[in-house]
């Protein structure tokens, strides 16, 4: 990869990444994490930092369709990739059925885990439109929530999958 060194000799690299359908070219240091690229460079702060070690899933984004912790992906590793963040879930101002279901089922409290939860659930329903409850729990088990005991989150995902909620 082409790089330019700064005064201290630290190199900068160009990352081309598609976020929520829009193309961005950003110059980053190698140590820039995807979560920082999104939050600091593109100002998509819906992707949250909770632990920065892959324990909590608050920074979950879809990288080429798969949920990953953006705190454990180098921005450079996302070069050429397609990223969906929580800001890219609603389309033309219309909430996704999962978003609506989270609101309708009291699945949101502090809201800090919500973006990551919705993206993990979104990836599940894309892959498996009619999951069982254990499948839902497994799919969100990398997303910690301190408020809800997961009860209403599981309910919301099941309701979205069963078509009880329409977008």
């Amino acid at each position: 990869m082409q790089a330019i060194a700064d005064k201290q000799g630290v190199k900068r690299y160009l990352v081309d990444v598609t976020v929520n359908g829009d193309d961005y070219s950003v110059v980053v240091k190698a140590n820039t994490l995807l979560v920082n690229l999104l939050r600091d460079e593109i100002d998509l702060t819906g992707t949250k930092k909770g632990c920065e070690l892959g324990d909590c899933g608050s920074c979950t984004v879809l990288l080429d369709g798969k949920p990953v912790d953006a705190c454990l992906v180098l921005a450079l590793e996302a070069d050429g990739c397609d990223v969906i963040t929580i800001e890219g879930v609603a389309q033309h101002g219309e909430l996704d059925k999962l978003q609506r279901s989270f609101a309708d089922n009291a699945a949101i409290q502090c809201g800090y885990c919500t973006p990551g939860m919705i993206l993990s659930a979104k990836a599940l329903l894309t892959r498996n439109p009619k999951p069982t409850e254990p499948e839902v729990r497994a799919a969100i088990s990398g997303n910690l929530c301190r408020c809800t005991g997961y009860v209403n989150i599981v309910k919301a995902v099941m309701a979205a999958a069963s078509g009880e909620v329409t977008a």
């Binding site: 990953v68 912790d69 454990l72 969100i140 990398g142």
Partner: peptide, 9 residues
């Protein structure tokens, strides 16, 4: 192993 997000990477 680990959790879903980690397993994807």
């Amino acid at each position: 192993l680990a959790n879903n997000q980690i397993r994807n990477r």
